[in-house]
């Protein structure tokens, strides 16, 4: 399986994402610059964390209008797995590929620590290797991860089982402790915690690796004969 890590000016978790896929997951991966106009050769798209365009105006606001995002939208329509982490999640929200928006953390602080996440939905292509209700440990590092959407949208997210990860406790003020959501089709996941920073016990946790392995498993089952 071949992944693209999209790099925007100001991305800073791109190398971690690359390392997670290449060295820990053992799959092919390329860095792809934000002005790319063709992602058709990739099976999965990863939007890394960081501060694209310095977080000017709003987190992800300027990045969501970059050229590559048209291709990311095409890939999403084609059903390819798209994962946005942290700033990548913010970009997916700004682009409308996922519903809602991010506000500043309730305590107005940049929070950087390991948190416990509950796997709310293990029936997605990103979470199938976890157990439902399982608690995993993954780090967060953000100042604007306070997830917000209107009541109607929240109801829809709950009804469609689109909430994949929730914080074990209130860490940043997010509505019903939402940490990660998928789109209705289930192939676009946005999450504030960093699974790519939790792929080896040496890093404090390897709980994030299963997320990447779930993506590969799903891809093998649908693309490789006799997988």
């Amino acid at each position: 399986m071949k992944f693209a890590v999209i790099v925007f000016p100001g991305s800073n978790c791109d190398v971690d994402m690359f390392h997670a896929v290449k060295d820990e997951l053992g799959e092919e991966v390329d860095f792809v610059w934000h002005d790319a106009d063709d992602l058709s050769s990739y099976d999965g798209i990863l939007l890394p964390g960081g501060f694209s365009y310095g977080d000017y105006l709003r987190s992800g606001a300027i990045a969501h209008l970059s050229k590559v995002m048209n291709e990311v939208k095409k890939a999403a329509e084609a059903g390819k797995p798209i994962l946005g982490v942290c700033n990548g999640f913010q970009i997916l929200l700004e682009s409308g590929l996922l519903p809602g928006a991010m506000l500043r953390n309730k305590n107005l602080k940049f929070i950087c620590k390991q948190v416990e996440l509950k796997v709310e939905n293990n029936e997605t292509m990103f979470s199938s290797l976890y157990k439902k209700g399982e608690t995993i440990t993954v780090p967060i590092a953000h100042g604007e991860g306070n997830y917000y959407c209107d009541e109607q949208t929240l109801k829809k997210l709950q009804e469609n089982n689109q909430i994949v990860f929730a914080y074990g406790e209130d860490v940043n003020g997010s509505l019903i402790d939402i940490a990660g959501i998928v789109n209705e089709k289930g192939n676009v996941l946005g999450m504030m915690p960093h699974p790519e920073r939790a792929v080896d016990e040496l890093l404090g946790s390897a709980d994030g690796l299963k997320l990447f392995q779930s993506i590969v498993k799903h891809w093998r089952e649908s693309h490789v004969v006799n997988a």
Binding site: L57, R58, A61, I62, L65, L93, E94, P99, G100, A101, L103, Y148, C149, D150
Partner: peptide, 9 residues
């Protein structure tokens, strides 16, 4: 609508 504000918030 396209850039300067985010209508969600």
């Amino acid at each position: 609508e396209k850039l300067l504000s985010n209508p969600v918030i």
